[in-house]
Design a binder for these strands. Structure first.
Lengths: 211, 211
DNA sequence: TTGTTGCAAATCGTATACTATTTTGTCAAC
DNA sequence: GTTGACAAAATAGTATACGATTTGCAACAA
């Protein structure tokens, strides 16, 4: 015994929340999770506390943990943070991009364009953005972007399947990639900023209509 | 019993780390902390795990927790994130600033300039930055900036007492405040960016000399 | 019906207790 | 004096146990 009992719980629950398999608001019963993993409640609680700090879970005293439900304003605020972090990451990444990076991104976009399954779009979209930022080499920054993506997941998943379609984001992705290829940092950053701001507007509209 | 035993531990240890009272690398003994607070190890571990997610503490299996030591590259990377977050916060804050905000900031800078105790500078500096960003109204963003400030604390505390003095940052603070007052968002953001980039250069130089 | 009261069950939070691992100290061999 | 082996102590990690709080439900009164 004694092999980091909390880690698998943390990973699993986290993945389930990010994948949208657990509804926001649904309770996370400690005994049940403990039994499922064949361990006691102690490491389960540790895992849940960690998720709490990541804002994926909330605790209420004597009621335990539940999947965190974001308010509408919070979603929009998180998108403002996304603008800051992702624009900075792109700015730092462009000088480090090499030919194979561009090839990979082109290939990914080509693949992306062919997908007809709405369910796939969200993941493909996230992946493209990460490919853009990875060359920045700033691990903590990439982690923060990842975390944010996770927190926004519940909104973006719904959005991508209803509002935006594929054409507009696709065109914008290609523009950003071209500007990056031309090493035009300012242009690329401005395009990315507009891209995320459009997403923000779509989320706002979606919520206004009572998402 | 049963009243959030972990919370006071979390707050206290966190405050001690941020204040620099605990050396990076020093171990955090669970039994000792538990005894000090008159509780058992379980809530202590929860508190430490929370601090781990905030990157203030690291766990090594069967060796427990210790105050996290940042590498030099990580410090510089965190400063790149600071540029992103704080510039964005200022950008969002300026349109929301009112007369009393400007008065408060002016008063704070005047007070700041009179302080001769080096130990006070760091806190005064942090406070001024927060006053700049607060009007943005974006809670999650302000929290992230706070967290970053904490993580960078161990570097900036040393820095402020050795390298930078008071004049240069003071002049820059005033410039940023003037641009904000004039509602010149672009200028203010550029000044702030330069301001933090200078800090970054100073940290880099400090580390090169084997800080 | 509707609202209240009072259990009983479910669930949480944490102290205690036990095992596993690491660290420390001792002593003999070289 | 240094090194290695091994026992003892310290420390971490987790299961079990138990009191405290909340929740669900039934019985009853209005």
């Amino acid at each position: 015994m004694s092999y980091a009992a909390a880690d698998p719980v943390y990973e699993d629950i986290r993945a389930m929340i990010l994948a949208g398999e657990l509804e926001p608001g649904s309770p996370l019963r400690q005994d049940e999770i403990a039994k499922r993993f064949g361990i006691s409640k102690i490491p389960v609680r540790e895992a849940l506390r960690r998720l709490e700090v990541e804002s994926l879970v909330t605790f209420e005293r004597n009621k335990g943990a539940s999947v965190r439900q974001y308010s509408e304003t919070e979603a929009l605020q998180l998108l403002d943070i996304r603008i800051a972090l992702e624009c900075r990451a792109l700015e730092l990444a462009i000088p480090n991009m090499i030919a194979s990076d561009f090839n990979d991104m082109h290939a990914h976009l080509a693949d992306y364009a062919k997908r007809t399954e709405v369910a796939e779009w969200s993941a493909m979209n996230t992946r493209f953005h990460h490919m853009l930022y990875e060359p920045c080499g700033n691990k903590p920054l990439l982690n923060m972007i990842n975390d944010l993506q996770g927190r926004l997941g519940q909104f973006l998943r719904v959005l991508v399947s209803t509002a935006s379609g594929l054409e507009r984001p696709m065109r914008e992705h290609e523009d950003i990639l071209e500007a990056s290829k031309a090493a035009d940092v300012d242009a690329a950053v401005q395009l990315l900023r507009k891209h995320i701001e459009t997403t923000k507007k779509e989320v706002a509209a979606f919520l206004r209509r009572g998402g």
